[in-house]
Design a protein around this nucleic acid. Structure first.
Length: 575
RNA sequence: CGGGGCGUAGCGCAGCCUGGUAGCGCAUCUGGUUUGGGACCAGAGGGUCGGGUGUUCGAAUCACCCCGCCCCGACCA
């Protein structure tokens, strides 16, 4: 990367005001500081400063992956449909996969991820167990036609990702590599000075048996993560399970009560003067995919709980579930607003928390009527108990019983132990020690490079602008010439050249601007260190050195270069 | 796709309700005065008022349709 630049020659279109269409701080600041510009929904230009940061992130990721034993390759963005047909994901991936035909009418798609391509490659080239294990990665542009791109770089349709794929002769080896990648990810995020948390996660469309997500903690994060205050348990709420308190209620007999026009759990509870937690919510869903495709099912949680649909999807081994329409509810004998598990002509799933629940209020499957005094084990038959409810703050941890807390996070990475999910359908085979053909086992590991850029800014900013960690700043030093006297310009240029020779990345602000403008821009851009050269100090033979976040001091002009080199040279130094 | 908000100069906004020759601040250009925390004076350039249709003598303004953007929900690195 070019070490030094003159500000007046660099394309850094900074903005004085926050752009009106940016909501979160990273989006605002990256636009204002001239790092990115929007091209179309979820698609961005990386301007020179933005690209420099991106390259820095990539450099750290490359260094750590190389250290961890992975090799870089580059796969294509355009992928043939056949590979997706073969893996079975052509259907499953849905409209997020951007499909098109080339001029010969050949079905193609833009790569949202590369399991198919890498497996295709390995299926051709892998022969012997002696070639394993192998971990291949790339840093490349992905395209996912997201339903709702938002928050600038945080959720783009086109984005840059580091994706690694490992192949192994057996699961023990896969697990070792999973741990290796897990540790590598921790090291990478630590180098960026991020507050982050690895959490147990759901597999999503990638799939897999074992998977963790890495979340950068930030209020603007789109994910909710649950973590225990007493032990190391942490999981995405999509996956998290926990224990809730169950009230002990009297087990009086079943009784029907009229509840005219009272439908929602809150309203019914208020109407009957009981806590919402005494209500049983019965939600009716239509299933898509899997063995129950098209089937209508019911799922129950307590009135004050939320149903986590992903958990229901897993319980059904389905692709998706959608709340049933009133008509669909009627086909299984329910009436929207008064649905209950009793006598419903559908599979009924109950959250585990309900096993011993008694004295519940449920819909009677009759207009304007509810039933009280329901005892799950006494009054219901053939229901399946599964984990369905969304974990809430204050629940108790299943491991240690301590209180669960919730935080928001930005998912910047995920690791998966996939097993043979893709290698089987894609026929990634090799000859093992015994001379037999065997299916390779596989892991995959992603880091959202461009998202990481936004996540870092989310955590590292103040009222004045961005505060880059030393290793990610587009330039380490902002050299500010104050005033336009010959002495100042000469002194600045001399220092600029010495720093350039020393390999310090310096942005020399030699513009004919007033001091305030230069300070504001330097702070907006987030450069870790400033060196200010002005007439006032020059008379005394000193220049001013100031950290982006912290103290300022005067140093002798003669020592300035050495001091700067000393402070900036050890990479990863703090500011 | 459902719900909410918005679209007027590069950026931020006013004008719209109550129709009558398009405005403000910042930015840009020219000249001058300034120069340690987003200067001042004088002048200048820059607009299909998101697009279309309609109502009207006349539409940024009213009506209808379309497009785009932002926020909340379903997706995910």
């Amino acid at each position: 990367m070019i070490a030094a630049m003159r500000y007046s020659k660099l394309f850094i279109p900074t903005l004085r005001d926050d752009p009106a269409d940016a909501e979160v701080v990273s989006h605002k600041l990256l636009l204002r500081a001239g790092y990115i510009r929007r091209v179309t929904s979820g698609v961005y230009d990386y301007l020179p400063m933005g690209l420099r940061v991106l390259r820095k992130i990539e450099a750290v990721v490359r260094e750590e992956l190389t250290r961890a034993g992975a090799q870089e390759l580059l796969m294509p963005m355009v992928q043939p449909s056949e590979l997706w047909e073969k893996s079975g994901r052509m259907e499953k991936y849905g409209p997020e996969l951007l499909r098109f035909k080339d001029r010969h009418g050949h079905g193609s798609c833009l790569g949202p991820t590369h399991e198919e391509v890498i497996c295709d490659l390995l299926s051709r080239e892998l022969r012997s167990y002696k070639q394993l294990p192998m971990n291949l990665y790339q840093i490349q542009t992905k395209f996912r036609d997201e339903i709702r791109p938002r928050f600038g770089l945080m959720r783009g349709r086109e984005f840059i990702m580091k994706d690694a794929y490992s192949f192994h002769a057996d699961d023990a080896c896969l697990n070792a590599e999973y741990d290796n990648m897990f540790a590598t990810y921790c090291r990478i995020f630590e180098r960026f000075n991020l507050k982050f948390r690895p959490v147990e996660a759901d597999g999503g469309t990638i799939g897999g048996n074992k998977t963790h997500e890495f979340h950068v903690l930030a209020e603007s994060g789109e994910d909710l993560i649950a973590h225990c205050s007493g032990c190391d348990y942490a999981a995405n709420v999509e996956k998290a399970s926990s224990q809730r308190e169950l009230q002990t209620l009297d087990c009086s007999a079943l009784q029907t009560v009229d509840t005219p026009h009272v439908t929602s759990a809150e309203d019914v509870a208020a109407f009957l003067s009981v806590p919402t937690s005494q209500l049983l919510k019965t939600l009716v869903y239509r299933v898509s995919g899997g063995e129950n495709d098209g089937v209508i099912v019911a799922a129950c949680v307590l009135g004050d709980d939320q149903l986590q649909e992903i958990k229901l999807i897993h319980a059904l081994a389905a692709d998706a579930v959608e709340l049933a329409t009133d008509e669909e509810v009627a086909t299984v004998g329910g009436i929207t607003g008064f649905i209950g598990p009793q006598g419903l002509n559908a599979m009924v799933f109950m959250d585990n928390s309900l096993k011993d629940a008694t004295g519940l209020v449920v819909g009677a499957n009759q207009k304007d009527v509810h039933v009280t005094g329901l005892d799950i084990s006494r009054d219901l038959e053939s229901v399946s108990f599964v984990d369905l409810r969304e974990t809430r703050a204050g629940d108790s941890c299943e491991k240690c019983g301590s209180a669960i807390e919730l935080s928001r996070g930005i998912e910047v990475g995920q690791v998966f132990a996939l097993g043979t999910q893709y290698t089987e359908s894609m026929e990634v085979m090799f000859q093992n020690k015994e001379g037999k053909r065997a299916i390779a086992t596989m892991g995959c590991y992603g880091i959202g490079i461009s998202r990481l850029m936004a996540a870092v800014v989310e955590q590292c900013n103040d009222d004045a602008g961005i505060v880059w960690p030393a290793e990610l700043a587009p330039f380490q030093l902002g050299l500010i010439s104050m005033g336009k006297s010959e002495e100042v310009l000469e002194a600045s240029e001399a220092i600029y050249k010495q720093l350039l020779d020393a390999g310090i990345e310096v942005l020399w602000d030699e513009r004919k601007e007033r001091p305030g403008v230069k300070f504001k821009d330097a702070e907006l851009l987030g450069l870790p260190l400033q060196l200010v050269i002005g007439d006032r100090g020059l008379k005394e033979g000193v220049v001013e050195m100031g950290w982006r976040k912290g103290e300022r001091s005067e140093v002798a002009l003669a020592d300035a270069v050495n001091i700067v080199i000393d402070r900036l040279k050890p990479s990863g130094c703090s500011n």
